[in-house]
């Protein structure tokens, strides 16, 4: 029975968790920073880094307290070290290295996106590989072929905005609030998804995604074609001129188009690859409409759907500890020179 302490600080959540044997979550503590970034309608990296440094120790202490464990009970330290905001990653990584060294336990660095793919098996059954994996979040939109915990190949990804980033921008356009995902879902609940004809990007036969066109199409549909350029740009209409039904219709149309792009490529991937199931994680997979559509496409392909529990859709350290435990089980571990990386080569 291996107890792994996971640490996550890749973006705007400071998190720590204890997971047993890669799947059983003993504690899961997340300190969100949404209130610090709301004013800016997006994450400000330097604010995020400062907040991580303030919160990292209390969060780790709370994860052990709620697990009724001492630090000496921990068998290994897992840390999300790539990809993410570099200043934020460095806080968690610096803490993890010092902890692992202090208590003479193995350290393992975990890819944050791969950890999202692992999140559906938290508090659930083991994964039977090979599997198809979807990560849909504010920073990542990608499909993976997962052969085992170590061997995960990206087979498609966004070429511009992540789907969660598009939700944030749509929320800004519609003045729906922050974070954008829940705000758009709430606003869309009373809307008609065919009210606006919004594009689903077609990028040929590959499995890539694009969301920048959808975002622009929404902006023009809501506020009209712009005049002028740069700071002098003006729009014929303000969002305040829309009725509440029109705002809901716009949100519902955007959400449907964003989800349709995901489903189309999952459908292709399930046609192309022999997999046992579809795993889906990341903040956007908490969206109820997406969860329904994922269930339908899996049913049509007769493949089980493994969705992350809502608590594990957002950035969290349980997924880091879970995958970290699985990696340690394979014999992988890292030295003190483990580095943070903002981006990861495909």
């Amino acid at each position: 029975m291996a107890l792994i302490l996971g640490i996550e600080s890749s973006c705007d959540e400071t998190a720590a968790a204890v997971v047993r044997d890669g799947r059983h979550v003993i504690s899961n503590v997340v300190a969100t920073q949404h209130e610090l970034h709301e004013r800016y309608s997006g994450v400000v990296p330097e604010i995020a880094s400062r907040a991580h440094l303030e919160r990292i120790l209390p969060v780790i202490q709370e994860s052990l307290r709620t697990a009724s464990l001492d630090l000496s009970d921990i068998d290994g330290i897992a840390v999300g070290h790539e990809p993410g905001l570099i200043g934020s990653l460095l806080v968690g990584l610096g803490a993890a290295k010092a902890l692992a060294w202090s208590i003479s336990r193995p350290l393992v660095g975990v890819n944050h996106v791969h950890a999202h793919l692992w999140s559906p098996c938290l508090d659930g059954e083991p994964i039977t590989f090979p599997a198809l994996g979807l990560v849909a979040s504010g920073g990542h939109t990608a499909l993976y072929l997962m052969r085992d915990p170590v061997d995960m190949s990206m087979i498609g990804s966004t070429i511009d905005d992540a789907v969660g980033e598009a939700f944030d921008k749509a929320a800004t356009i519609l003045e729906a609030g922050y974070p954008g995902g829940p705000a758009i879902e709430s606003l869309a609940s009373g809307g008609h998804e065919k009210a606006l004809k919004l594009p689903v990007a077609r990028l040929g036969d590959n499995l890539n995604f694009s969301y920048s066109g959808l975002k622009t199409a929404l902006l023009y549909a809501v506020r009209g074609r712009p005049e002028g350029r740069g700071k002098a740009v003006t729009y014929p209409r303000a969002v305040s001129e829309l009725s509440s039904q029109e705002r809901s219709d716009a949100a519902a149309s955007f959400q449907a188009a964003a989800i349709a792009a995901l489903i189309r490529n999952i459908n292709r991937a399930l046609d192309q690859h022999e997999v046992t199931c579809l795993l889906a994680g990341g903040g956007v997979t908490a969206n109820s409409s997406l969860r329904r559509e994922l269930a339908k496409i899996c049913q049509s392909h007769d493949r089980p759907l493994r969705l992350a529990e809502p608590a594990y859709c957002v950035d969290n350290a349980a997924m880091i500890a879970g995958l970290g435990g699985a990696l340690l089980e394979t014999g992988m571990q890292h030295d003190m020179d483990l580095a943070a990386a903002a981006r990861v080569a495909r």
């Binding site: 440094l53 200043g87 460095l90 806080v91 010092a98």
Partner: peptide, 11 residues
């Protein structure tokens, strides 16, 4: 600074 402070906290 972040690397040093994070490490000192944990140590």
């Amino acid at each position: 600074l972040r690397i040093g402070i994070a490490a000192a906290k944990m140590l």
